[in-house]
Computed example of a mutant assay.
Amino acid sequence: MAKPDQDVRERLRQHFADLPPEDQAGAWNAMWQQNITPWDRGLPNPALIDTLTNLSGMLGRPFKDPDDPSKSPRRKKALVPGCGRGYDVLLLAAAGYNAYGLDTSTLAISSAQDLANEPDRDSKYAPAIPSEEGGGRGEAEFLEADFFKDAFLAHTDGGEFDIIYDYTFLCALPPALRPAWAKRMSDLLSPTGHLICLEFPLKKEPRLGGPPHGLTCELYEQLLKQPGTEVKYDSGGYVIVEEGGVGRADGALTRVARWKAERTHEVGKGGDYVSVWMHLR
């Protein structure tokens, strides 16, 4: 007998099964309306908390010292596409970044804004660096917007984000949009920025479809070393790594760290990996 969580995921898969890729973004709001939100775990992912802590040296402080000492430091910017209720956005803001969450669902954005205004936010998302030490909380803004279009950039002081975080966004996309995902990540990431991917669900066979669609380490590598270029799949849905490899294209991102997450949401335990990517220099 199927478990309740499996039943919900099957309803999710069937909801998107017959929708063309260009229509899927608008269909997520219906899932929120029906309370079919298996991706919503009620708190930030512990793997992101650990990443921000353990890689603080690599990521640097969440603001840049101004050229003019009389001016306040400029906070770095973070972007979370497919943010849902925005737990990870609030975490990044508490870490000191001006954090922006995107979602195509009206209900998701409304829920995220409500969460940001809850009276216990200060205790749940305390600033990682106190104001008196030059830190303090960054802004958290939630935008109903399409990640693949530029309209939202008018609200984020342009592109060039210092951190982009992807957890369930790539696995929610139909495979046809994966090359566009990689190209967009490359275009929006600042020259010294970090793309943080929580690779999920690596334990799911790609042939089973989705969302969430099963992903592999090799898929991330192929997509990000040739942003915008189609990848080839075998009959099981696994990406084909061509013998001899493919060279890196302009805008390629290179992986600078990868590890198995010691802490993550229950659904990903034992299978989630964190990978960190940067532009080639």
Rank of each mutant, 00 (worst) to 15 (best):
I196D: 02
K71S: 13
E243K: 11
P201F: 05
S123V: 12
T104V: 14
P227T: 04
L55S: 08
T53K: 13
S190C: 08
G84Y: 05
Q33D: 14
D23R: 14
L12I: 12
D166A: 09
S56G: 07
K76A: 01
D114A: 15
P201I: 01
P191R: 04
P46W: 07
L202N: 04
E199A: 04
D88R: 11
D122A: 15
V239Y: 07
G270E: 09
I49L: 15
W277D: 02
L208E: 13
Q113G: 08
P21E: 12
G135V: 10
C83W: 07
T168Y: 00
P130G: 06
A154W: 00
A116D: 13
P127T: 04
A108G: 09
L173K: 04
E139N: 06
Y273S: 00
K204V: 06
M278G: 01
P174H: 14
Y97V: 05
L43A: 15
H15I: 03
G96N: 10
L153H: 07
P81R: 12
K269A: 06
A180K: 09
P81Y: 09
L107N: 12
K203Y: 12
G82M: 11
Y125V: 01
R75K: 07
R85A: 14
P130N: 02
Y97F: 14
V256C: 04
D114R: 15
P191D: 05
L92Y: 12
L12F: 06
G210L: 03
N117E: 14
G86W: 03
G247H: 08
L19D: 06
W32D: 11
A47K: 00
P73K: 08
A99K: 01
A249F: 03
I163F: 05
G96L: 05
P20D: 08
P21W: 14
E139R: 08
F142D: 10
G268I: 00
F161K: 01
K204P: 00
Q33K: 13
E221R: 12
I164K: 01
H265E: 06
R178W: 14
V274I: 10
K3N: 15
G26W: 04
K77G: 03
K76D: 03
Q33P: 03
E139M: 09
